[in-house]
Computed example of a mutant assay.
Amino acid sequence: MKHAAIAAALALSGALVVTVLPLAAEDAAITTETANAIAAAVADTMRPAEDTARDEARKPGKIIAFAGVRPGMVVIEYSPGGGYYTRLLAKTVGPTGHVYALVPAGFAGRQDYMDRMNALAAQYGNVDIIPTDFGNYKLPKMADLAWTSENYHDFVNGGTAEPADKAAFAALKPGGLYFIEDHAAPGTGLTATNSLHRIDPAAVKSQVIAAGFVFDGESDALHNPDDPHDASPRQFSGVSDKFALRFKKPE
């Protein structure tokens, strides 16, 4: 019955083809309320067309469900980019939740970018855009989930991955979740982060576990076996192979 409720709720979005992931931890955490909130986020008419055009490749409904996002959560989002997931997270957590979108401190000087992101925050009403050092920040509330998508390899390049992991651990409540999605380069360790803008998921696991987290699950929703992993995602003609990892701060 629970699987049927999840599938029916997520299918409310015509842009989303639903296959419930066979992950016991995820299934146990999802309620019909959460599934409805995710479906409403994907179907949100405030999302720009350039975002919804990417949904087929990014599978936001599946990814948000796997990450453990639910209504009422306080979420930290590292490097929100243009706000693709910021909008989805804001809508999913709803008016009783909050999203702290952390952007690199250098972005504060890019007025056009900050204006766009602050307009997004005003549109949703439960988002704060915070230029900050990822390894040294203080939020008004302890968070339920920390999130980063397609950025972790850049954190490694900039020397902020380990500080961000430690800061996320400190900012999360006991039992809080840390979600990382990125372009995959299996077996390369940290050697492809700059040259190919990809990273080995095993290297991410090692770094995040070293910060105190426990590995809590992996989704293959974004896995593409046809990606040879030998070019940057922008140079690859198809959709890049991506991994999605979930970690947990011990209770």
Score class of each variant (00 low, 15 high):
H3C: 06
A4C: 03
A4Q: 11
A11Q: 09
A11E: 11
L16W: 13
P22H: 00
A25L: 11
E26K: 08
A29W: 05
E33K: 14
A39G: 14
M46G: 15
R47N: 15
R47C: 08
A49I: 05
R54F: 02
R54K: 07
D55M: 15
G61F: 01
G61N: 03
G68H: 04
G82V: 07
Y84H: 09
L89V: 11
L89G: 10
V103G: 04
D115F: 12
D115M: 14
D115L: 15
M117Y: 02
A119W: 01
L120D: 08
Q123N: 12
G125C: 05
T132G: 06
M142H: 14
M142G: 12
A146V: 01
Y152D: 01
H153V: 03
V156M: 10
G158K: 09
G158I: 00
E162A: 14
F169L: 08
A171W: 02
L172D: 02
G176S: 08
P186D: 12
H197Q: 11
A202M: 12
A203D: 09
V204Y: 01
Q207H: 15
G212W: 00
E218K: 11
A231T: 11
V239S: 12
D241A: 11
D241M: 09
A244P: 06
P250M: 08
P250A: 11
E251R: 11
